[in-house]
Amino acid sequence: MIGIVGYGSYVPCYRITVDEIARQWGKKGDDIKNGILVYEKSVPGMDEDTITIAVAAAKNALKRAQIDPQKIEGVYIGSESHPYAVKPSGTVLVDALGIGPEVHVADYEFACKAGSEAMYVAFSHIKSGEMNYAMGIGADTSQGAPGDALEFTASAGGSAFIMGKENVLAEILATYSYTSDTADFWRREGRMYPMHGSRFTGEPAYFKHVLGAGRGILKKTGLEPEDFKYAVFHMPNGKFPLKAGKTLGFTKKQMEPGWVVPWIGNTYSGSSITGLSAALDAAAPGDKILMVSFGSGAGSDAFVFQTTEAIEAAQHLAPTFKEMTTKKRIYLTYGEYVRYRGKIQLND
């Protein structure tokens, strides 16, 4: 059996509400909240970035896996906000966690799907027999341009998944990917903020790929929506995943535990996989979970998981998503937010 042997998430404690951002730009908060079904978003602390978020998530995954970090033979981090343009995030992480130096490390980028990409690579190394344990992580501290629609949702957070074949918490039954050249969202080299195609990010991008991957994996496995306890779809806002799930035949009850976007925003590479983490927190043995990521550019990775008897004992070995996101929240004004996000330039 091959699958997840440890999982963990991390979301910073800072928040800014949609109302506060709307107030800054003279917009109506209620209209925006009703439009995107997001009420507040996480903000990274001034000393937090993709690397520190990945480390925190990976520590929680190690707590649940209960394995010696030295046993991990591969570490892959997916993000669109790696702190260095040239220098891996993964090397900082392995030294911080006491993994390696006999370890294969790589950073990935594929907009919001870089995290599931890292998971897929980690899983594939176990499946091939090349490694006994490998970790896939997705983390981001994404930026929306001031005043842009993305500013209401672009947030910070991440999740880590250790793949292995002993003491598996959730077996990976199938994977399926769906990819095409679709320029719905991009950021050119050296630019601080991304650009997007507004409504073009919907049907031709998000829905084409999420539905393509969702339909593909259902066909590949012969499973029906009612065979699943939970379903998680990438969450650029609150509406898109609910619409995609409904189109595929899933109910809101199946999607709700992994629908984490209304209170933390879009954690980009950490989005669908943090939804998966929340669904695993709620799962009972034998539950099937569908996860479909989406990355602009564009593509989706779909996974079917089935939890094992070991899931319940592991759930409380590290903070659950709910505990982490409700225990401590520090709300920022828009002025504090722009300071925290490094949007203020000081003289040298």
Partner: peptide, 13 residues
């Protein structure tokens, strides 16, 4: 584990 300081605009984190 956190970022402690940056070595200027071009140096290490």
């Amino acid at each position: 584990f956190r970022l402690v300081q940056k070595e200027g605009h071009a140096g290490i984190l």
